[in-house]
Amino acid sequence: MNWTIFHQQIFPIRHKLYRFALRITGSVHEAEDVVQEVMERVWKSPAEQSAAVQNWEAWCMTLTRNRSLDKTRAQTQRRAAPIDSLAGYSADNPTPAQETEFRDMADRVRRLMQHLPEKQRLVMHLRDIEELSYEEIATVLEISLDQVKVNLHRARKAVREKLLTTEITAPFNP
């Protein structure tokens, strides 16, 4: 692997890989391990393999998905990620109460997404958080375009239905 390619194309997407691994494994530590393993594998990839890669991001996301699923399947029981690890939000000049409230609600949404079936969860994550195109999602998850659209529709519908039944305790304005 060429250092320039690694620095310009692989290193900047490490957080994206981490979020994706975190979405699949639900564990901060395992997500970190997955990203390191993926980066190490990419770094050590033979020149001929590197030359054949057209889309580094899609390739890394696929490696991350496969490695994360391997880890998840090896576990008998998935550990839940700490709330703080997925909140990551800070409003402009929030009061401590507002910040706590937002973290609570953001965690509720995260949990809703986390309980979706695997394909729906990953499709929604790649679209709504990583902002990948349908084609890129199909490549990363190795499914058809139709499956991407169907799973995205079902995922959003399920989240919406659950949100409608979720009690909003306070107005949610910035």
Binding site: Y18, R19, S85, G88, F102, M105, V109
Partner: peptide
Amino acid sequence: ALRAQQSVQM
């Protein structure tokens, strides 16, 4: 919540 999750970093 989606936007917040976009800012999660390693």
